[in-house]
């Protein structure tokens, strides 16, 4: 049985109808057309589907959409303010922190959550926080560099 849920997505109020088993990722990709978050492993391991739910990174592939009812959601599409990209987006480009780009939205959103929590994290904190996102192209060094750049460390 479908249930109507309300979400505030990138600052806009949205309503979607979902079955209880619909994942947050399916709701966001298929119904809201926000495809920046990707399905990677479908098991909360790789981080390609990361979204910020009330500011915190979650694996949208395994989070029930019904359980997000009333929450605030940030997706990669919501980071830039018009033409002005988020500093993390700029830093990822400057440092070369991506290749194929499939993991990128997950990394940037996770890094955003970290910097919102802790504006000047140590390198160790960055590694801890981002340690559960996979980049198969292997841009880990550049990703750390990009986050450090934005954090000013």
């Amino acid at each position: 049985m479908k249930k109507q849920i309300r979400l505030r997505v990138n600052g806009m109020d949205r309503t979607v109808e979902v079955a209880p088993r619909t994942s947050l990722l399916e709701a966001v990709r298929d119904q809201l057309g926000l495809t920046g978050a990707k399905l990677g492993c479908d098991m909360q391991v790789c981080g390609a589907c990361t979204l910020l739910l009330d500011g915190k990174p979650v694996s949208a592939c395994s989070f029930l959409a019904v359980d997000a009812d009333g929450s605030e959601l940030t997706t990669i599409e919501g980071l830039a303010a018009g033409d002005r990209l988020h500093p993390l987006q700029e830093a990822f480009m400057d440092c070369g922190a991506l290749q194929c780009g499939y993991c990128t939205s997950g990394f940037i959103l996770t890094a955003k959550a970290l910097l919102d929590e802790q504006p000047r994290p140590s390198e160790e904190q960055i590694k801890d926080y981002l340690g559960g996102n996979f980049c198969r192209c292997g841009c880990y060094q550049e990703i750390i560099q990009a986050v450090k750049k934005v954090a000013g460390i």
Binding site: T50, V58, D128, L130, G132
Partner: peptide, 12 residues
């Protein structure tokens, strides 16, 4: 806890 799974799993 710092070493349990990843930040997303620890959040939920």
């Amino acid at each position: 806890e710092r070493e349990v799974a990843n930040i997303r799993v620890r959040n939920v």
